[in-house]
Simulated scan of single mutants.
Amino acid sequence: MNHLLASVITGMVTDENEKNYFVQKDGITFALDKSEGLHHIGDMVSGFAYTDTLQKARLTTKEIATTRTTYGWGVVTEVRRDLGIFLDIGLEDKQFVVSLDVLPELKELWPKKGDKLYVRLEVDKKDRIWALPADQEVFQKMAGPAYNNMQNQTWPAIVYRLKLSGTFVYLPENNMLGFIHPSERFAEPRLGEVVKARVIGFREVDRTLNLSLKPRSFEMLENDAQMILTYLEANGGFMTLNDKSSPEDIKETFGISKGQFKKALGGLMKAKKIKQDELGTELID
């Protein structure tokens, strides 16, 4: 049966009962749910061959993109730290596992429920079907060229490769590839995560995009200013920090640089939201 699993096969309907037709191929009988269509004894039927959760041989005529030789997207439904992750590829009675052996060493970078992986299937000697994530070469063959007119556009991107040099992503709405340098993210995205990435550059050599997960400078200023306002409101409208405070004290309180802090204070003072003196900074009613 091994050579038939995780593939599209054609077999003959040899029997039936109330619920299933029984399709034979190379001496192996696969159950086909009658809800998928009307057939008769002697008909030839094509479908995807697999084993269900009870390891029973089954056939489905539904279109399944992921096989031994073709890649398709799967959605993560469960994470098992001792085994790997479970993927839904469109079968009601079966999910396939991506083994922990092919996942990142750091479990914090494993996909989470709802994340997406582009995979093909593989069958081991015990007739178990596993999902294998696509490598860089597969994505390069699949993706089209990016264009040099996308600056500052923001697009969803799926993380498909993690390297020390940065994060490699696929833009599904554009069928393009992109790269996120470590300096353009606050934290490393996990494999399979769908992120919103902003275009900051174009690589002529391979027609891919340089991307950022950080907001633009004026957006960061707005975020920093809002953070300071929220802090003041939560602390009675006053704080002992001002633009003369030490970088260490500012970093400890807000997690930003003194330069960012001063810019945010300047914006808030221009907007007449705050005032400051040698004692600190105060909200203006």
Rank of each mutant, 00 (worst) to 15 (best):
M12C: 12
V13N: 04
D15N: 14
N17R: 06
N20L: 09
T29R: 10
A31S: 14
D33R: 03
H39E: 08
I41R: 09
V45R: 01
F48C: 05
T51Q: 15
K56V: 15
R58D: 08
T60H: 02
E63H: 14
W73Y: 12
G74V: 06
T77Y: 05
D88E: 12
K94R: 15
F96R: 02
V98A: 00
V98P: 00
S99W: 07
K107P: 10
E108Q: 15
Y118K: 05
V119T: 07
V119Y: 04
K125F: 11
K126C: 03
D127I: 14
A134G: 07
A134C: 02
N148L: 07
N149D: 15
I158M: 08
F168M: 09
P172K: 06
M176C: 13
G178Y: 03
I180F: 00
P182H: 01
A197K: 02
F202V: 01
F202S: 00
R207V: 08
T208V: 04
K214M: 10
E219V: 11
M220P: 04
N223P: 03
L229Y: 02
E233V: 12
G236M: 03
M239P: 03
K244Q: 15
S246D: 12
K251A: 14
K251C: 10
F254A: 06
K258R: 15
F261P: 01
L265P: 00
K270Y: 10
K270L: 14
K275D: 11
D277E: 07
T281F: 06
E282R: 15
